[in-house]
Design a protein around this nucleic acid. Sequence first.
DNA 1: TTGGCCAATTTTGAATTCAAAATTCACACG
DNA 2: CGTGTGAATTTTGAATTCAAAATTGGCCAA
Lengths: 220, 220
Amino acid sequence: MEHSVTSENLALDRQGLHQIVVDRLRKLIVEGRLEAGSRINEKALCEQLQISRTPLREALKVLANEKLVELLPNRGAKVVLLSDREIAEAFEVMARLEAISGELACERITQPELDEIHALHYEMLACYTRKDLPGYYDINMRIHALISKAARNELLQDLYQRVNFRIQSLRFRSNFDETEWAESVQEHTELLEALTKRDGARAAAVLHLHLTKKQRKLKL
Amino acid sequence: MEHSVTSENLALDRQGLHQIVVDRLRKLIVEGRLEAGSRINEKALCEQLQISRTPLREALKVLANEKLVELLPNRGAKVVLLSDREIAEAFEVMARLEAISGELACERITQPELDEIHALHYEMLACYTRKDLPGYYDINMRIHALISKAARNELLQDLYQRVNFRIQSLRFRSNFDETEWAESVQEHTELLEALTKRDGARAAAVLHLHLTKKQRKLKL
DNA sequence: TTGGCCAATTTTGAATTCAAAATTCACACG
DNA sequence: CGTGTGAATTTTGAATTCAAAATTGGCCAA
């Protein structure tokens, strides 16, 4: 192995083991692979992730701060299970954050970014036509993430992501019937229009409504 | 000692040592007693706080997640020093969050809460008259916190606090001349008016402007 | 003196250890 | 049968340990 250095130093350790664990665990939670409400056993998780308890416990404390897990004194951690009220609050905040992002994005988005969103929009239409729901969800999320990014405010983007982490796992609870799906697509078309015209107020309004409707589609 | 239990169990440990350390450290940072940009020595802090390194390191990771400290790989932690851009972003977000809180508070605030805000407002006027700036700051913050609370959305309140932690330490950098102080007081009076009339749009507008002006008062 | 190099020391990252708390489980008793 | 009790086991919280990385400080040479 001619090129190898002392220790295979691929994964240039960004910032300590704990951060890697935070990201992996958060992904597991957000994707629903770690069930909401379920207990987290430190030993078991350590073995699964092949790490010692220290970085795992550090990660759990960070995720508790993000309110993705709950720390019970002397009784370990559990994946947070949102109450109906918390879900409603998250959507109320998300609707506002998206509206703000949309408004700011109208002022600050670049043409290449706008083009990319348009491209994604067509990809999304393709998924819609094929009734490919997972693909639709994925592209939809990427569009919203790009808008958040185009608002050119990293703190706003951070808050957006934070709230998004909370509600993303709820996508399994949304029942998209044919009519509602079509409606959602229509809203996206209007959003693109507003963005293209740099009509901030309209983009904000469309996004606020879009999120409010998304909330209504949740199964209770 | 007749009443004493095995171990003096006052401070009913809310939730582990690390959380206590998080709160204490955050307070030190926000109050500026831990200088922005300064290195944090684990051993020294451990001795000062009379704890071992484990809970301190857990706390540092949480605070890094809150972006109050920065973790440098293998080189320890330092208190975050905000760039001008980050400060501008924080105020941009804060202005929006306050506006949202004000708007929602108009819909949801109770009469006792409104009364308490009025009482605080008069206390604040007293501080203003006496030119008691620390007292003014303190009451001012409590008024804004109450409005955030009256919005009846814990997640929104959490985001509000998070952003507030970031910019609170900047209060040392604001130069309040006589005119500006008077102006600020006037804005508060208008805010109270809007709240009393439950005029959400107006409360939002006043708060947005209030924050924007606050930002302009910062020394660069 | 100044600059560079290497050993000694300090500091960090993460695993391990140890005590305290909670949980499990067997068994006696009603 | 179901229920309460307590010892054994597991799990958690936090200190300690240990290796790796960074920093410091001294020494030598230019």
